[in-house]
């Protein structure tokens, strides 16, 4: 089985937000929720870099650990998913997530923030693969169709890579050795407890 990961090559990302748009469209994500976003560091200054970020599907995921109702589960492909039927909208996963991935339909917590929503690696949720219920709650299940997440597929510079961790790490390594530089796989150390040696 593959161990799915995301990798954003910050030296290539041009902050075009195509991944953000692709995700919103493919998964029919409601207004106010962005499962993926592009953060630009030192915007407008020399040496600025942009990184496209969503749920990293962490190893030993902190969100799953702190969830008071234990509504997370990890698929055989190591994708971290959750059940909206069980979620109580407490917001704890957001406190624990190193990447700000969990999103909530309601801004305030008065009573509840509503069912948490986050990137599913285009792998849907606990409902039957490809079912209408699954699509309505979690969006597309491309993985079940043998396709990778649309954000990475759409990336105009192929900065964003999605797929088996070993494969995308290899692609990145080859890139770095060919062009002679690379700022590393952003977030990997925090998410997977390993960096890519380049």
């Amino acid at each position: 089985m593959a161990r799915m990961k995301f990798l954003c090559d910050a030296d290539r990302c041009i902050e075009c937000n195509a991944c953000v748009t692709a995700c919103k469209n493919e998964n029919d994500v409601p207004w106010g929720i962005n499962r993926r976003r592009v953060v630009t560091i030192n915007d407008g200054k020399p040496g600025e870099r942009s990184v496209s970020m969503a749920c990293m599907h962490c190893t030993d995921a902190p969100c799953a650990s702190v969830c008071p109702v234990d509504c997370f589960y990890t698929t055989a492909d190591a994708v971290v998913l959750h059940s909206k039927d069980l979620c109580i909208g407490c917001g704890y996963c957001f406190y624990a997530c190193p990447f700000g991935a969990p999103q909530y339909p309601k801004v305030g917590n008065f009573g509840s923030r509503g069912k948490m929503d986050k990137c599913t690696f285009c792998a849907g949720g606990p409902e039957a693969d490809g079912s209408k219920e699954e699509y309505e709650k979690y969006g597309a299940n491309r993985l079940a169709e043998g396709k990778l997440p649309l954000c990475a597929e759409m990336c105009s510079t192929k900065s964003l890579l999605a797929g088996d961790g070993d494969v995308i790490a290899q692609i990145y390594k080859e890139r770095v050795s060919k062009r002679g530089y690379g700022s590393g796989a952003w977030g990997w150390q925090t998410a997977y407890r390993e960096a890519i040696a380049t």
Binding site: N17, G32, V39, T40, P98, G187, T190
Partner: peptide, 18 residues
């Protein structure tokens, strides 16, 4: 950093403190 979507609070890229 800075984000171009209207959700300003999503501008924290990484917080290992989580």
């Amino acid at each position: 950093g800075r984000v171009s979507i209207p959700d300003r609070k999503s501008d924290v890229l990484e917080q290992p403190a989580g």
